[in-house]
Amino acid sequence: MTAPVADDVVRDVVREAIRSVWKQCPDLIEHGVHERTVVAHIAAALNVRLEAWPGLWRADVEYNRFHDRGLEAIGTKYLRGAAGDRRNVYPNLIVHDPRGGGPDHNLLVLEAKKGAPTDIDREPDYRKLQGFLQQFDYHQAAFLEYDGTGGRPRIEWLVPFISHPDPTTPASEEL
């Protein structure tokens, strides 16, 4: 069994990885490269840091190895059927131990949004994140938003069974 990792440790590592991408890959950030590419670089930076942790922790992008019923529940219950297509339900990034599921194996789920996200952009991602927290037992979730022109990223942290943040306001923590 994988040893649980404290939430603040996970958050610190995620912050470090995001900051390193902003510092080391300014071309991606300043030129509006697609969020999938930016998230892939964040996952790579996370994986370097996760190697020092005990266990088999890994950051994966657009991970699609979930049970169909769980994805359907997220698509219908949390997204009100608006994103029932499973291709839209996969998270941008997860940090997990791929040897199992549940709270001992699922640390973090992250969604990213490039541009100037509005409440219409944030609301479904917050709902999706809450679904992954509850349906797949993730310890926490993060919503990353950034302008795609070189500005500092902002992140909003979500925890299980707590109502999601107000989508009409930008993510609360500037990195």
Rank of each mutant, 00 (worst) to 15 (best):
P91H: 06
L110Y: 15
K23P: 02
G150P: 03
D166V: 08
E111I: 04
Y126K: 09
P91M: 01
L71N: 02
L110R: 12
V159W: 10
R154N: 08
N64R: 15
E173I: 11
P124C: 11
G100M: 04
V95R: 12
A6Q: 13
T168V: 06
D137G: 04
V33I: 14
Y138R: 04
V10W: 02
G150T: 04
C25L: 13
H31I: 14
L158S: 06
D125M: 10
K113N: 01
P26A: 05
D147L: 09
I94N: 03
T149Y: 12
I155W: 07
G148H: 02
A17K: 06
P103L: 15
T168I: 06
A44S: 12
T76M: 01
F136T: 04
Q130T: 07
R86I: 01
H31A: 15
L108N: 00
D147R: 04
L110C: 13
D125F: 01
L110D: 06
P4K: 04
V5M: 09
S20H: 13
C25R: 12
W22D: 02
G84F: 07
E51P: 03
A52Q: 11
R80P: 06
R11H: 07
E123Q: 07
P153Q: 10
E145F: 01
G102R: 10
D166L: 05
M1P: 14
A6G: 11
Y146H: 10
E30V: 08
T169M: 14
P103E: 14
P117S: 07
R152T: 14
V9R: 15
